[in-house]
Amino acid sequence: MTRISDLPQTLPVFPLPGALLLPRARLPLHIFEPRYLQMLDDCLKTESRLIGMIQPQPARNAGDADIPPVHRIGCAGRITQFSETEDGRYMITLTGISRFRTTGEIDGFHPYRKFRVDWTGFERDQGSAERDSDFDRDSLMRLLDRYFTARDLSADWETMREADDELLINSLAMLMDFSPEDKQALLEAPSLSTRRETLVTLIEYALRGGEGDIMQ
């Protein structure tokens, strides 16, 4: 278990729309932009090897196009797999460690964005896997069957039936094609139960043919 006292007070941050990382989950990333190649090189030199994943907010004015605002809450992931392609790109896997709250952006000469962060309030993220005592798996499976059928998608149903509560709910939250704002709502859910409730609401809304973000 990672302790808050062991976590850094600053983080390089990767604002990638729709890319959701959750504690104890794994997120594969393909790094090729020069600024993020530099971020990765710098990160690999640190003891923690942490990168913060965060959702950009919708641009409010023309100036936001260059430096878009970001949500205050993100999730830090440790680089746990790393490979380099022949043309200099990186394939990495981040393993979610803990959510964080940004407290201010750090100006500097680095081409990527860096923030001061606060880990307070997310102590549960650094513990063991959560359980969802009210989880009705059969009901979720029926809902997913309707969703996948409507979109002509396939699924490994046996694996989903056997997966632990947290692995199943978080994997669905990360993989399903929701908007960045809805992904942020899933990230900010205070417990696994509320994340599952949010996930079900999003799927039901999509099945009704809803448009736009229901979490606005």
Rank of each mutant, 00 (worst) to 15 (best):
L11C: 02
S171K: 09
S133A: 15
L167R: 11
P56N: 04
T103V: 15
P8R: 00
K45M: 08
T102L: 14
R196D: 00
R60N: 13
G127V: 10
P28S: 06
W157G: 05
E166G: 01
E166K: 00
R35K: 05
D87I: 13
H110Y: 14
G77Y: 06
F100D: 05
V117N: 04
A62N: 11
D177M: 06
P56F: 08
L16G: 09
A173R: 00
L143I: 01
S193A: 11
Q57R: 15
I106E: 11
S191V: 02
I169H: 02
C43A: 15
N61F: 11
I31G: 01
L40P: 03
R131S: 12
S179R: 08
G74L: 08
R24M: 06
K45V: 03
L140F: 05
R60L: 15
R151E: 03
Q216D: 14
L20I: 05
I4V: 15
S128L: 13
D6C: 04
R196H: 02
R142Y: 05
F122I: 09
A206P: 01
P12E: 08
R195P: 04
L192F: 00
M141Q: 08
L168S: 01
L11Y: 04
G212N: 01
R116I: 10
V13Y: 02
Y147S: 01
E84M: 13
S5K: 10
T103C: 10
S133E: 12
R72Y: 10
E105F: 09
T198L: 03
M53K: 08
T149Y: 01
D64V: 04
Y36K: 02
P68T: 03
S193C: 01
E188R: 12
I169G: 00
E158M: 14
P34G: 04
L94K: 07
E47L: 05
P68D: 06
E158F: 11
L186F: 01
F148K: 05
E181G: 14
D213H: 09
M141T: 06
D125I: 09
T149K: 14
D87S: 10
Q81N: 13
R195E: 02
Q38N: 07
R49L: 12
E188H: 00
P68N: 05
Q216S: 13
D177I: 00
V13C: 13
S193W: 04
M176S: 02
A189P: 02
R89Q: 13
V117A: 08
I51K: 04
S98V: 08
S179K: 08
D177R: 11
F148M: 05
R60V: 12
